[in-house]
């Protein structure tokens, strides 16, 4: 089978570089971190490998770690819900109420900021939200004598910044699934005498579930792993499990603990996805 041999070599030669690269720089590092999370010490200096569960135990024995993880989950949930509440109607207006070139242009406008530097966008919020900043200034200008607005270093600032960063995801995914929804379906429902609310609740929303679900996952997962957004916008109010993990590597140099916390976070993410998967799959099938 000469041709078969040639084919095998071609496949190996073409996929080899990319997958070797991914292995060396993503899969092996993740494995290495997993291994070190069960080691007493990180990869500094010379010492014997020593197996321990203490970094995982730390999470379960120290209440503040659980609190901070809980806070991260709360942050993820809040951001996801706000993105849904703002993003779904926006996507609906865009997909069903605006036509032609305008729609294309507005759609691009919506997703464009999303492709700009995330750090810089967070930075711009610090400028807007600080006392004497743009928001404060604007409010004082419109309502002279209103109480000063100081959102700097607050939980709300973190949420605002994250919503700003991730909102385009939700608009994008909802837009794509609403786009696929046939207008004649809505017209058929209307001809059967369904009210606007009924149409929204019984037809549009169920059919948009795949888009909403995709958006929710795409937002929730990175948000609970975020660290620089809470750090820059939340200050002391912005301590979450992400910032704790980051500091294990940059400040405290307790890499095994950082690794253990990372994998616990990853496990929680997978657990949430696994629990919601049957529900979502069900809804998607009916949709």
């Amino acid at each position: 089978m000469r041709a078969e041999t040639r084919r095998r070599w071609a496949i190996a030669g073409l996929t080899g570089p990319a997958y070797l690269w991914l292995t060396l720089t993503i899969f092996l590092p993740l494995s290495a971190m997993l291994w070190f999370s069960f080691q007493k010490k990180g990869p500094f200096g010379r010492h014997e490998a020593e197996f321990t569960l203490k970094h995982y135990e730390a999470f379960f024995t120290k209440a503040y770690m659980q609190d901070l993880t809980w806070r991260s989950l709360e942050m993820g949930l809040q951001v996801t819900v706000i993105c849904l509440v703002l993003g779904f109607p926006a996507a609906y207006v865009l997909a069903k109420r605006i036509r032609g070139r305008w729609r294309e242009a507005l759609f691009l406008l919506v997703v464009l900021p999303f492709w700009s530097n995330a750090l810089v966008r967070i930075f711009s919020w610090t400028v807007v939200l600080r006392p004497g900043g743009v928001l404060d200034g604007a409010v004082q200008f419109v309502f002279p004598g209103a109480p000063a607005i100081d959102l700097a270093d607050s939980w709300n600032a973190v949420i605002i910044g994250l919503v700003h960063s991730y909102l385009p995801y939700m608009i994008l995914t909802c837009y794509l699934s609403l786009q696929a929804l046939d207008d004649s379906l809505i017209e058929a429902a209307r001809s059967l005498g369904a009210s606007a609310a009924t149409i929204l609740w019984r037809i549009v929303l169920p059919l948009a579930i795949p888009g909403i679900a995709a958006g929710a996952v795409l937002i929730f997962v990175p948000v609970i792993g975020s660290f620089f957004e809470p750090k820059l916008l939340g200050g002391t109010q912005g301590v979450v499990i992400g910032t704790v993990i980051e500091e294990q590597f940059t400040v405290v140099s307790n890499w095994p603990l950082g690794g253990a916390l990372s994998f616990i976070l990853l496990a929680i993410v997978l657990l949430i996805l696994a629990v919601s998967y049957p529900f979502l799959k069900d809804r998607m099938r009916t949709a």
Binding site: F27, L30, S226, I245, E246
Partner: peptide
């Protein structure tokens, strides 16, 4: 399927894992 973990795992975790591995 192997393309999806690098996209979906938070960058914080991938970045720290790279740090550990590259240092080691």
């Amino acid at each position: 399927l192997l393309l999806f973990p690098p996209i979906t795992i938070p960058w914080l975790i991938i970045g720290t894992a790279m740090l550990v591995f590259f240092f080691w």
